[in-house]
């Protein structure tokens, strides 16, 4: 059976794109996407994205320009991915003991949409290099694309923004403190005892002004609490609203006091997890950049 001259490049591009999608779909301690079915949805969409990116090259070469306009259809398709992720996660969030918060959810949703576009571009370039040069050029392009995707995907971590210190929670009257940061008012002595037994406190000192604004974001704080609660468990149940992990801010210094109620009290592990909490895209603020730009302009 005779076949199209573009058959092998197309297969190559689709396979590369799909593999890149698989490699970007890491399931880590945050457990997302959690199960086989969630993963299959993303793999299927990654496959479609790879197909779209690949087909672009032969369409251009064959001067079938209308085919390329179908990409706009694809874009709206992948915007739905974001909506799908957002809706699912928001639904699930109401049943979490410690929720992710909308900022975190939006970050995840955007990442899922963005990854599909990365797959489209990777497949496009890989197929292009295969057709224009040869399979080896295609292969090298695929590897380069993989590293670029990985670089684009990896954001900042909390350890890039703050220094983390352990500080045992304490009570002054009914006021719960971590370091010198007031967390909340706990009235009952029994509750106080429970909190001192099970609670842990951490002080996050921002390394610069930008970091201080970023960690002040409520969504970022919720993300910190969520990640720690997932990794270390949480000493909490429905109907015990007093046992709630909280992060409060020292207004003067911008230092963040994080109070958590883990199931396993392991300081080193907790610091490690805090250090690896992602700095959320939507929370990152860089006011110093604007300031320095203004200075240059004036």
């Amino acid at each position: 059976m005779g076949h199209n001259e573009f058959l092998y490049p197309i297969i190559f591009g689709v396979v590369t794109g799909t593999i890149i999608r698989i490699l970007m779909l890491k399931t880590d301690y945050r457990q997302y996407p959690p199960h086989l079915h969630g993963r299959i949805i993303h793999l299927a969409l990654g496959f479609i994205a790879a197909g779209l990116g690949t087909i672009m090259v032969p369409s251009i070469l064959k001067e079938e320009y209308t085919a390329i306009t179908f990409l706009t259809l694809a874009a709206s398709q992948f915007r739905d991915v974001r909506n799908m992720e957002r809706t699912t996660l928001q639904q699930l969030d109401t049943f979490e003991l410690v929720g992710r918060g909308n900022t975190y959810i939006e970050g995840i949703a955007v990442a899922f949409e963005g990854r599909n576009y990365l797959v489209i571009l990777s497949s496009f370039f890989t197929t292009g290099f295969y057709i224009v040069f040869n399979i080896w050029a295609g292969l090298i392009c695929a590897i380069v694309c993989f590293f670029i995707c990985r670089k684009l995907m990896a954001g900042n971590r909390l350890k890039d923004l703050v220094d983390i210190e352990y500080s045992a929670p304490r009570f002054e009257g009914p006021g719960l403190y971590v370091g010198d940061i007031y967390i909340m008012n706990i009235g009952l002595p029994d509750r106080q005892k429970e909190i001192l037994e099970n609670g842990m406190g951490f002080i996050l000192k921002p390394k610069n002004f930008n970091a201080s604004i970023t960690i002040a974001n409520l969504g970022q704080r919720q993300a910190i609490l969520y990640d720690v609660s997932v990794a270390l468990g949480v000493y909490r149940d429905s109907g015990t609203p007093a046992l709630v992990p909280l992060a409060k801010r020292n207004l003067k210094t911008g230092t963040l006091g994080v109070f958590i109620l883990p199931q396993t009290k392991d300081i080193d592990k907790a610091i490690q997890i805090l250090a690896n909490v992602p700095a959320l895209e939507n929370a990152i603020r860089i006011p110093s950049k604007t300031l320095s730009q203004e200075r240059q302009e004036s």
Binding site: P174, I186, G187, L188, P189, D190, G239, T240, P241, A242
Partner: peptide, 28 residues
């Protein structure tokens, strides 16, 4: 203490102490 503890559980709120003599249950 015992009434506060009970009400805290029943009302699903948090018991806060205003001073040694006055406790309030607040739903957050």
């Amino acid at each position: 203490y015992s009434i506060t503890a009970n009400l805290e559980a029943i009302l699903d709120g948090i018991a806060h102490a205003l001073n040694d003599e006055i406790y309030i249950i607040v739903k957050h």
